[in-house]
Design a protein around this nucleic acid. Structure first.
Lengths: 239, 239
DNA sequence: ACCTGCGTCCGACGAAAGAATGATGTGGCG
DNA sequence: CGCCACATCATTCTTTCGTCGGACGCAGGT
């Protein structure tokens, strides 16, 4: 299901040459300036000659990636202004398929971690992580692998319906993901067309494709489906 | 904002005659048979001659209330099959305005409790509650009052937008609530008409009314709005 | 070089949604 | 009783949705 595996190739650095002297380019996306700074500092210690960009919001991140082209790694906080949970990750993966994304979050629930990986994240870093482990994790990802906290159980967990939905979502093209997110904001086809600078007919074509891929019959059902992946059906704690 | 206050009147028992000998009629709605039994037992100890109905699902509850007419109190678990969180409460309150509902839940977050009360619940019982406190709570509600755990802060908390939305939702008529819930399942007007055994024109009338009351422009936006009240914008702790 | 698949784009057409107006019946309430 | 809220339905009209068929460009494969 996951297209992740051969990432290191696009970096042009090769799959093996991960060391402190390589000139990597990172992006740190987090709304909290303090934590952003701390993370930046940590990376600087690990990779002396690294180039580190910062983004405080999702729009920042987007324009940054468009301007800078492919970078080697994005460290993404799931809870940023303008990001509704996993949508941001999904969007990012669709828009910049070549850029590995590591999710950084205070939330360590296994369900959240698993979902991140299903949406194509290359790793998951709890904010509580120590420097040494972080180095290991980032190296692993730069080499094209993935990294998740060692003590969590990723295997089971997701119910059938959710897993199926995630699979369907991962077949959407970048443009379709954009359209789906706009659908989820309640926009009309006309408005979406304006935003994307295409004709309304095109938007309709995308919507139709989305409906087919998600296996639903109307835009409303598509929105419902998309909203389900955010909450994960509210994974109730006991009760 | 809340229409709750004068409930005891409809019971015909008067506002003051709450004692162990009165023949009250309760409904215990919980999907867990064990807990349902325990709750039933507890109530029996408090009110010897009480008549207690049980419902294991939301449909059960609904048909039960339709058959038995007004009962004195419904003890409702928020997380039942066929209930998407608060929708069940909202629906219940719209469909049977005269029946006091006490929410029983393992989830004790203040936000959840507050939202329950905003949707017209007469009380909130944490599942961890002792028998004696439960007696106090139930009495209080049977007298027409409300009861919430004493140590939680109900005052602040809700952001402006959510509060506004809750207000709007509370202006919906019972039928409109039904229609809104069907909209939230992605049904077409035609399908809703069939389910409710009314004409499509009527459904359109309801939908138009819903859109106006919620202050949105399309059915999709109405669904989005309705889904927001479930998650409460997922009020994540810290991060 | 050719062909095939995929993503994006577009226009036309039938179906659904939503607004507007008006009308009827019902039940509660002063 | 009149008033009002609620539910019901019809009709007309405009807008929006969604499908269908087709166009183009661009990659990969033979």
């Amino acid at each position: 299901m996951n297209q992740r595996a051969i990432t290191g190739i696009e970096t042009g650095e090769g799959l093996l040459a991960v060391d402190a002297s390589t000139h990597y380019r990172f992006v740190v996306a987090d709304d909290h300036p303090l934590f952003r700074g701390a993370l930046k500092e940590s990376i600087h210690n690990l990779f002396k000659s690294a180039e580190i960009f910062e983004a405080g919001g999702f729009d920042d991140l987007q324009t940054l990636l468009e301007r800078e082209g492919d970078v080697d790694l994005v460290l993404l906080d799931l809870t940023m202004p303008g990001v509704r949970g996993f949508s941001g990750l999904l969007y990012l993966r669709a828009q910049f398929p070549g850029v590995p994304v590591v999710v950084v979050s205070a939330n360590e629930e296994p369900g959240v971690i698993r979902r991140c990986m299903e949406f194509g994240a290359s790793g998951f870093l709890p904010k509580t992580l120590g420097v040494e482990t972080m180095r290991t994790a980032i190296r692993s990802v730069l080499e094209g692998g993935v990294w998740t906290p060692p003590d969590v159980d990723l295997s089971g967990g997701a119910d059938e319906a959710t897993r199926d939905l995630v699979n369907r979502l991962s077949t959407l093209t970048p443009q379709q993901v954009r359209v789906l997110m706009m659908l989820s904001e309640g926009l009309l086809n006309k408005q979406i067309a304006f935003e994307l600078k295409v004709s309304e007919a095109t938007v309709k074509a995308h919507v139709s494709a989305i409906l087919q891929k998600l296996g639903v019959e109307s835009r409303t059902q598509a929105v419902i489906a998309a909203s389900k992946i955010e909450t994960g059906q509210w994974p109730r704690p006991a009760n």
